[in-house]
């Protein structure tokens, strides 16, 4: 071998070694290499969804329920004698209720007959409404939230939609377009009926007119 070709081979070897090292030191984990699925790094996701803070509160217009049946506890009186929400944790003192909440899923016959539930099959009232304090909703964790925060409740199941809603991709907003501008975030329930969330059909508006002549000429004379 000549001196020149030795140089050439050494150079190639070096390059190949370097590339191999690069490959194995790369960010792909063993699992990812096996499944062929490369997961987005947590850092990446954090950057994209840096507003993803579940406890953040959003300014919303009054929930629709405030215009109708609310306050719910006008009927579902929690506590005549002022026993507090400790009860929710299971220490119910029977005598304090006018109606004892019946936590068994069933079809309501006497009241709320206008509400038709077409949500997920297994859902019923007390999956979302607080059992003992009907002016509130409740999360799956048991945390009690107001109707203004209903998006947190919906977001428990509809995670990707909730994420899009927070970014402004899903849903409606009114006010200022700036990302830090004053605006109101319309709640899920402003557009979707929570009991049957699928969109109902809307009446469409008038057909555009075809260009027409003659009618304008008369108009001119009037003016």
């Amino acid at each position: 071998m000549t001196k020149k070709s030795v140089c050439k081979y050494t150079f190639r070897l070096l390059i190949i070694t370097a590339l191999t090292c690069l490959f194995f030191s790369g960010s792909i984990t063993a699992e990812e290499a096996k499944t062929g699925i490369v997961k987005a790094g947590p850092k990446q996701e954090q950057q994209l969804y840096k507003n993803d803070n579940d406890t953040k509160l959003y300014p919303v217009p009054p929930p629709l329920v405030y215009q109708s049946l609310y306050p719910c506890q006008a009927c579902h009186r929690k506590d005549i004698r002022g026993v507090n929400s400790q009860l929710e944790k299971g220490n119910a003192f029977l005598g304090t209720y006018i109606h004892l909440p019946d936590p068994k899923p069933r079809i309501l016959i006497r009241m709320h007959r206008d509400i038709r539930l077409h949500h997920a099959k297994w859902m019923w009232c007390l999956n979302c409404h607080s059992t003992y304090e009907r002016n509130y909703l409740k999360l799956i964790t048991g945390e009690r939230i107001s109707f203004e925060q209903s998006y947190r409740l919906c977001g428990q199941c509809h995670g990707s939609i909730y994420r899009d809603w927070k970014l402004g991709i899903h849903g409606r907003r009114v006010g200022e377009w700036k990302s830090d501008g004053k605006k109101l975030y319309l709640l899920c329930t402003h557009c979707h009926d929570p009991h049957q969330p699928h969109f109902r059909k809307l009446p469409g508006m008038a057909i555009p007119e075809l260009p027409s002549y003659g009618r304008w000429e008369n108009l001119e004379e009037h003016e």
Binding site: R172, R173, V174, G175, E176, W177, K178, G181, K183, C191
Partner: peptide, 19 residues
């Protein structure tokens, strides 16, 4: 600073606007 009228009126929130 306000949203365009078509954005605010869209009943299904299909219209988006920003910088």
């Amino acid at each position: 600073g306000r949203y365009p009228a078509c954005v605010e009126v869209c009943p299904v929130g299909a219209r988006k606007f920003g910088n």
